[in-house]
Design a protein around this nucleic acid. Structure first.
Lengths: 262, 262
DNA sequence: CGTGGAAGTTCCACATAGTGAAACTGCATT
DNA sequence: AATGCAGTTTCACTATGTGGAACTTCCACG
């Protein structure tokens, strides 16, 4: 597992965020001692951090079970973030249209801290059981959207992102090194297209395209996902033109989008 | 209990959160000076806070426009919060069923920091949305869900919540004082039912019921909303039995819900 | 062009705020 | 009564954050 960069000198706020992230990663309410065992902070320090976060509503403390979980205050903050910093509100009509035409699961993702963050999703009519939902994060090095975005990053930004990858072999098709991934990224850059060939989950494949800024850098990615039980990679290829034009439409809307300067 | 309790807002983390909230409240990307004019912190202090938050991904800085907006990292944190601290995942099937039967807008809300936080929503037109509507906050003193929850709070908790109300007269029907609201809350407690009679928005009415814990305290609320153009208050009354049983079903699911202790 | 001012950024002496080892409490279990 | 573990409090110490002031852009206007 990778962790949020605990750069020295990040300050108290960084430490607090680190703790919040740690608790969020458990994906279930946790007891103090469990957090402690995963944390680099001494008991008293962690205790105070957790207390502070709880009193601020960033954590919720369950008195009965003596557990901590991320608090609802985060949800209202995220609402503002989603509306202002994600492509989702702008892309919504385009994603709707694509999903309706294609009838498979559509994902809209952005890169955040070297990871793929799914900011919107449309389920297939007959939904496949799989890992994804808006707000969910996933690895960049072994997903279609991740590779699409990495390929169209500036060199410096890509280096930063690559350094944050875990290279965990989720399946036998997963890239496990910088070198082999970079190789594929060249192809992705050439085609403007990235495939996930069961690299993250066995039986799950997808095709993804980057959403590019006017300067040719990726600001997000769009993908169509399916299972090998339903379709093959070459079946997916048939959707490519439609996905590409949708990505371009989203890019255009994003560029046009003017924030009220007032 | 704490007597010399660290006042919320104290501490560096509290200050950082305050700034984040402030920026989120603008509902659009803001320039540094705009934040400064709304903040109690001196320029240098605010500047450092904003820098720190930006480097941690809690804020996003737009170089071209020189503006700050809540960052995407919040979205992934909120995902964990929504799944673990909100009723939404548990309530989802029940809310789905209710919405389908009734065919009007359904809201699932919880109280957070004295405000109503909408954690899920069903629109007749637009079925599945995530943070687009979930995450929105609203006032407690002039909404159906707000009054339903306030009525079934412990005395101490209700006092805290009432102290946080703005008493802004959104419409001519809005309660503008503790006293008149408390009056209605008694009725709400008797009936287990709260109405919004165009108190928040003209033309918008709703009926809401609390979702109660085993100890009889509200852990959330469920409402059906419509416009005076479509239905009357007495039309809404017809839905009451169905809403009430749905609320009870959600309460039961919530009580049964056991977190894997491991 | 210059010049004035507003917005944004850096500096640094200072003290507030956070730190963490250790001691303590409460509650099971033996 | 004794042991052990989880959670909580204390307090001397100092890392961190503070904020007034000075500095640097960058325009708008004369």
């Amino acid at each position: 597992m990778n962790k949020a960069a605990p750069r020295p000198g990040d300050g108290t706020i960084g430490k607090a965020l680190e703790v919040l992230d740690l608790i969020a990663r458990f994906e279930r309410p946790v007891r103090f001692s469990e957090v402690l065992s995963q944390s680099s902070h001494p008991k008293a320090t962690l205790y105070r951090l957790v207390q502070t976060l709880t009193s601020l509503g960033m954590l919720r403390y369950d008195v009965d079970n003596q557990t901590y979980a991320p608090g609802l205050r985060l949800v209202s903050l995220a609402h503002a973030a989603w509306r202002q910093s994600s492509l989702a509100p702008i892309a919504r009509p385009h994603v709707d249209a694509l999903s309706e035409t294609i009838g498979e699961t559509v994902h809209l993702a952005q890169l955040d801290g070297g990871q793929v963050l799914y900011v919107d999703k449309r389920n297939a009519a007959d939904p496949i059981e799989m890992f994804s939902q808006a707000g969910k994060v996933g690895p960049a090095y072994c997903t279609g959207v991740g590779k699409a975005m990495l390929a169209f990053l500036g060199d410096a930004a890509r280096e930063v992102a690559l350094a944050q990858q875990a290279w965990f072999p989720h399946t036998s098709h997963t890239h496990t090194s910088r070198a082999s991934l970079l190789d594929e990224l060249a192809t992705v850059r050439r085609d403007g297209l990235a495939y996930d060939r069961e690299e993250h989950e066995t039986g799950i494949i997808c095709v993804a395209t980057p959403i590019l800024s006017e300067t040719g850098r990726s600001i997000g990615a769009l993908s169509v996902t399916t299972s090998t039980a339903r379709k093959s990679l070459s079946d997916l290829t048939e959707f490519v033109p439609h996905i590409k034009t949708t990505a371009q439409d989203i890019a255009k809307s994003a560029a046009t989008w003017q924030f009220p300067t007032q």
